[in-house]
Amino acid sequence: MNIFRLAGDMTHLLSIIVLLLKIYATKSCSGISLKTQELYALVFLARYLDLFTDFISVYNTIMKVVFIASSLAIVWCMRLHPLVKRSYDKELDTFRHYFLIGGTFVLALVLNEKFTLQEILWAFSIYLEAVAILPQLVLLQRSGNVDNLTGQYVFFLGAYRAFYILNWIYRYLTEPRFTRWIACVSGIVQTGIYADFFYYYFISWKNNSKLKLPA
C-alpha cells in the first residue's frame, strides 16, 4: 500500500459519501444518473467476486463490502425510495448504457489476463468502470446547472483514478515485476474522459461561478 493508492481509495470513498450526503440531505437525486449508479454497482459486483475466496487484508475486505453495499443502496434509493425516486430526471437520463455493458464485456472476452470467468469479469469491471461516468456527464450537460454536491461527487470520482495512475507509476518504479496493463490503460482512458469536466470545474472554481457544462 502506498500513499497514492490510499489517497485514491479515500477520494473514492469521499465521492460516495458526498453522493449519499446529497441524496440523504436533500432527499433528492436530481442531477444524478441512475444508469451510472447501476453501472458502478455492476462494476463492484463483477470485480469483487473474490471477496469470499481470496483474503488480501482487513482493509481490502472492508472497502469491498462498503463499495458494494453503498452502490446497491444508492441504486435502491433512486429506484424505490418513495421520496427520492420522484426527483429522478428520468427523461434526461437517456444514455443507452446497455451498449456500454455489451461493448466492454466483448472487449473483456478478447482482452484479458487469462481466459477464466473470474479474469474475464475482472477485465470487464475495469473497462466498464472507465466508461461508467458517461451517462452522468451527459446528464450534467443536459441539465445545465450543476448543484455543488453533484459537482463535487463527479470531481472526487475523477480524482480517485488520477491518484491510482500515480500509484501504478510508483509501483512500476519500485516493484520489479509490477505490470498491470489492463488497469493502467483503462485508468488513463477513464481519467481522460473527466478531462473536460475537470477543466470546466476548475474554471467555475476560479471565477467562483456556478458550474455550467456547455450543452
Binding site: 473514492h12 481470496d54 488480501i56 481490502n60 472497502m63 469491498k64 491510482y164 500509484n167 488497469a183
Partner: peptide, 10 residues
Amino acid sequence: VQNEVVKDEL
C-alpha cells in the same frame, strides 16, 4: 508455477 498476480487493488 508462475505465481498469480494477486489483485490487491480495489
